[in-house]
Design a protein around this nucleic acid. Sequence first.
DNA 1: ATTAATGTATCATGCTTTGATACTTTGGCA
DNA 2: TGCCAAAGTATCAAAGCATGATACATTAAT
Lengths: 129, 129
Amino acid sequence: MITILLDSPVPLHDQLVSELRGLIAQGKLAVGDELPSVRQLAADLGINLNTVARAYRELTDAGLLTSARGRGTVVISSVEKGRGPKSLSQQRLESSMAGALADAKIAGISLEVIQAIFKKQTEIIWKNP
Amino acid sequence: MITILLDSPVPLHDQLVSELRGLIAQGKLAVGDELPSVRQLAADLGINLNTVARAYRELTDAGLLTSARGRGTVVISSVEKGRGPKSLSQQRLESSMAGALADAKIAGISLEVIQAIFKKQTEIIWKNP
DNA sequence: ATTAATGTATCATGCTTTGATACTTTGGCA
DNA sequence: TGCCAAAGTATCAAAGCATGATACATTAAT
């Protein structure tokens, strides 16, 4: 359900936070759902328990989760504490993405090719040395 | 022209590489264009010269730039080493896509969110002609 | 009460980035 | 031709940070 890249420049706990935020935002993790224990998730991902704990703590600080010793970690909200619905950079991404796709459609590029290009570019930008 | 975020989890040299890749892919930096000196750009961005030098070196290794002592750094290619040519419209799509993704990465938007935005935009554009 | 399972805290270690500084090469100009 | 400024490169140190091993504290179930 959750995947992380061990050889990414972005720290593991940051990846985890992003992943979990995404799952919560998408509703795949609903309010009231219990997350796997830090040891469980750490074992699943092959990383240290502290790294998972740190991600949980950051999301707890953000107001999305609640944690307690002996009881586990639970989703308590799907909205960030004190944050707007969308970041400015995200809106900008939507705009530029929409523009690029509209142009591509007019140029007659097939959806399959577009998806392939998107995939390749993300790979280049994310995984290059 | 180039902006970086000092408080991003992404390393400065990685941000620089992404930015420069984006500019080259978009054609804002054309083949033959000379880049600012490592000292100049470092001063402009308020970072260390080594950081700029490292970004230049990585792009040199990727086959996009060439550097020489005393002469500076110049764009020699707009395509990554080991990639073939494409149709014109596809190249344009690749360019704008690369630019958008590079910006998104620097902004710290997670890959999952980016993919969600891409999916949503394609649905919108292909559904409503 | 015991025990297993949970999150939390502490500390060490190692990697990586970043920076300060010096070296080397090139090209222009007196 | 010789000097000098400007370019990239190399070296080394310092700092930060992520990651991990381990121990502690708390809860709930038996």
